[in-house]
Design a protein around this nucleic acid. Sequence first.
DNA 1: TATCGTTGCATTGCTTGCTATGTAATATTA
DNA 2: TAATATTACATAGCAAGCAATGCAACGATA
Lengths: 143, 143
Amino acid sequence: MSSAGYLVNNLARLLVEVLRKRIAPLGIVPGQFPTLLALWEREGLTQKELLGMLDIEQATLANTLTRMERDGLIVRKEHPADARARVIHLTERGRSIRDSAYQAALEINEDVLADLNDDEVQAFLGYMRRVIGRIKRLEKEKV
Amino acid sequence: MSSAGYLVNNLARLLVEVLRKRIAPLGIVPGQFPTLLALWEREGLTQKELLGMLDIEQATLANTLTRMERDGLIVRKEHPADARARVIHLTERGRSIRDSAYQAALEINEDVLADLNDDEVQAFLGYMRRVIGRIKRLEKEKV
DNA sequence: TATCGTTGCATTGCTTGCTATGTAATATTA
DNA sequence: TAATATTACATAGCAAGCAATGCAACGATA
């Protein structure tokens, strides 16, 4: 029970739970984090634009945005030029948790990687990027 | 967008989808894989015993077992000595896909890690085990 | 300009994870 | 042994992922 796939899956779930506990006081959940990071960089994006930054499927993002709107983190306003699209803005609340959230993310990163030195961390990240690249290339070839 | 957490999560999702596509012809889904691996090793386990091998929560396993029973992979029979417990057996169908499933898992492992040499694979697995260990230790301390 | 394909987003339904809680059955103890 | 605690499993409800599909609005073209 320790193939790469099993370990990656296990690690991912552990990390999500660590993140969940740390950001719970901010009133957000792990699935909202990548979207918030993007919106803290730039507001007023459409769902399409956001999607381009996020490695998730459109349906997943649409549902996540609905929950974020329900939770008072964002608002979807009408697009000035295209009635199909909507522009996404942070609420004051969504904006206000930015610094604490960045802080939490940094702390988790440090805590969790504390047993690896800098070179090892770089090697680890490098391996993951290479495997991710490999899988994406495999998928493209088959199409 | 390339912290360890983000990469791990991304990689885990990619791997699950690769697995999903490869095992779809066998009529099973990724969440059933670890349970099947355990049952192919030994049948007639209780849920409790299975749980001890699986790094998931009891409720998750109970639901997975229900879907596996629905899909005709396992049957839950009454425990000879304890009326609360049930022993879990593979159906003929569950048993029959064993070799193809092992084969699929091996192939995926190879395909996906093909850009890393043996030393790099070992290093990669080692890093994951260390980080997993670190997180579990962190959680224990807090309790 | 009327038609028709494309685009942007929402919805539905499923899986797989979680926590919290319910319910028998079993085990312990007063 | 009656009361109580614990155990084994199930259930409910939510999050976050996916594919498939629906629908209105937009854009291109005959």
